[in-house]
Design a protein around this nucleic acid. Structure first.
Lengths: 244, 244
DNA sequence: TAGGATTTGTGCGTATGTATT
DNA sequence: TAATACATACGCACAAATCCT
């Protein structure tokens, strides 16, 4: 299978095992998406905290690729504001100063109210079922909340919410800003407030789910806006507490 | 193992001549911005039309760099939806189908009304002077309009308008969508309508300038929204004419 | 201040994918 | 169907920038 090559290939050919047990060589697009998604998730879930250094060599080795495709991924993450590279220094997970955080949230508020107004996509029974599943996970999670699970269920809810946005540029903007903001939220949340926040979040998901069941998409947008607004107000309180 | 290539550097060291006549070697960031801006401008001004093929080799040669940094630029343009690369085939300037175009404009309408609401930046006398200069160029341009000049003055106006947006995520989104939409507008505009559109555009700039002079930023946003809405309605008419 | 260590950026040969003959 | 041409994708050696001793 391997053709004769004049240069050795120290990096193993990358293969993925699909659920059908078929051996399939990833093409470059899938590879990019996979690595991109993995690193973004680690950033969002604070496995890589703001300020943390991401070594190209190390990541390349981890994913079994050379630096070239990996640098492509980091370049994309940089364009979206999640990391920042400095020649000769390193690549670092970005942090958001107070002003930037405020701007991001203000913009997200306005975008939230557009969700139900700019051609929302009707929900199929499968779509509703997925959101119900998210809600049920929320319920279980609220009983025994952990920080990583909060981040995950939050992401999944945002994902489901985004999937009803028919307007593509709006949807992509909403998603991008979510990835920018979520890690700050998770990082700032005091451990002793986790249970309360988990309950609040469960209530939001419940509200949104009810509106979705009624196919009242405008209500979905405004509900989300309201909850976003209040969670930002609490976030600012937590930030002030942390600054003391 | 490796034939140690003591290879020279066939590509000349890139230098830029500043206005102070200082000889200055560009660093990688400036280089990226320069190449990125140049290609984006060519796409927006239809020097590279939708569907056109952008050869990496050719562009690299044109800008006096290797394919590596150039691919970084193309990758960024791809992330922003201006080009699309296919392995083994080529890199092509994207086109917008009717549905996408509609979504982009609908979203831009909503964003326009946010311009004056999300912390607009006060205008200094210099800022106003720059916008007055744009308006004067508009007046001269409306007397003897040409298509390339339309694109240019349109870009400059959008640039000035964006510079008053205090909310950075909003500003960047507005700019990105402008670059996506402007080339479709220029491409679709029938030559016989150029004079009329030039006059309409001059009026918009005049309206916005007046609101700016009064520091009524909310009015700026809604004026822009109104003009954007009407220009999209005309755009659809032109598209229907072109489809017959 | 100088130099080595480390990191990102660049150049180029080659691998891989696609279309055409 | 196989071969060829040509495009993007990748791996690696080296250049350049920065930091630390």
């Amino acid at each position: 299978m391997q053709p004769s090559r004049r240069r050795g290939t120290p990096i193993d050919r990358e293969v993925t095992l699909t659920k059908n047990s078929d051996l399939k060589v990833s093409n470059s697009r899938e590879r990019f998406d996979r690595i991109y998604g993995a690193i973004r998730e680690k950033i969002c879930l604070l496995e890589y905290e703001p300020g943390a250094s991401l070594s190209e060599d190390e990541l390349a080795q981890q994913f079994g690729v050379s630096r070239t495709p990996l640098r492509r991924v980091l370049s994309r993450l940089e364009a979206e504001g999640l990391v920042e590279s400095q020649h000769g220094v390193g690549t670092f997970v970005t942090d958001l100063d107070d002003q930037t955080l405020k701007e991001v949230y203000q913009f997200r508020l306005e975008l939230a109210s557009l969700i139900g107004r700019l051609g929302p996509l009707g929900r199929s029974e499968e779509d509703l079922e997925r959101m119900r599943a998210v809600f049920m996970r929320c319920q279980r999670f609220a009983e025994a909340p952990t920080m990583p699970e909060f981040a995950r269920v939050n992401s999944d809810f945002a994902q489901e919410l985004a999937s009803m946005i028919g307007n593509r540029p709006l949807r992509e903007t909403v998603q991008r800003l979510f990835y920018v903001a979520i890690r700050v939220w998770i990082k700032t949340l005091p451990a002793e407030r986790l249970a309360i926040e988990a309950a609040i979040f469960r209530d939001e998901v419940e509200d949104v789910l009810q509106a979705l069941e009624l196919a009242d998409f405008e209500a979905v947008g405004y509900l989300h806006r309201t909850h976003l607004s209040m969670s930002f107000a609490r976030l600012r309180q937590y930030l002030e507490l942390g600054n003391d």
